[in-house]
Design a protein around this nucleic acid. Structure first.
Lengths: 106, 106
DNA sequence: AAACTATATCGTAATATTGCAATATAAAAA
DNA sequence: TTTTTATATTGCAATATTACGATATAGTTT
């Protein structure tokens, strides 16, 4: 096994899980925080900012891009990365509609 | 490797990643949604609700409990589970302070 | 006590993730 | 054109996750 049974759950549940997974690593949280701070930067700035090797950063950026959380633009021989606002807003509001009425257990 | 370098990141970054990881599976999202709907229930109700085997549900519940998202109370020979409000509220507000000023890249 | 109910744990197979050295690609600068 | 700069990809080793059958544990009922 080791394979998540995606087909057994709703599209919405899978989407929430997918977005959460993209954030489920401190390096990716750090990348998001850095991008929010500087608004936009090239990949190399992130490599210099974080204590991880360049291929590792590249891999994390790829996952964030696949999840739609960031986007990259080619600028000469560099790539300018920034937060993809619509998806990021979605993440912030992910659990908004989930409101426990009361907590009368435990 | 395969080992996340937790010590290289801030406590806050690791906490966000940890909470996100707990939600990063559709079954756990489904469990949270179900608990919010019924407010509280015993583990067996979740086993009947989700299309996964009992040991698998038990494992997911353990992860949610370890992350502090849910809590369980022994009630006879059953265990009553419910959302742990403080942590759940924290998750909802996780990205609140992160506000991109502008999006003038890409 | 014996049977039943509810949950947890163990063991294990399949798969995914993390991290990086080595290397590839491609544009810019010299 | 050679070198430098910036990024991506490949390959691989270490570790983590997912899923579940088998089994253990513990309270409840009969």
């Amino acid at each position: 096994m080791g394979l998540t049974k995606t087909d057994l759950f709703t599209e919405n549940q899978n989407e929430i899980a997918m977005l959460a997974k993209a954030i489920a690593h401190p390096a990716r949280v750090a990348i998001i925080e850095y991008l929010l701070k500087v608004n936009a930067c090239i990949c190399n700035d992130i490599v210099n900012e974080l204590p991880l090797a360049q291929p590792t950063i590249s891999q994390h950026l790829k996952e964030l891009k696949n999840a739609g959380i960031i986007k990259g633009n080619i600028e000469g021989n560099a790539i300018c990365y920034c937060i993809n606002e619509p998806i990021f807003s979605k993440i912030k509001g992910l659990f908004g509609p989930m409101q426990p009425i009361q907590n009368n257990c435990c």
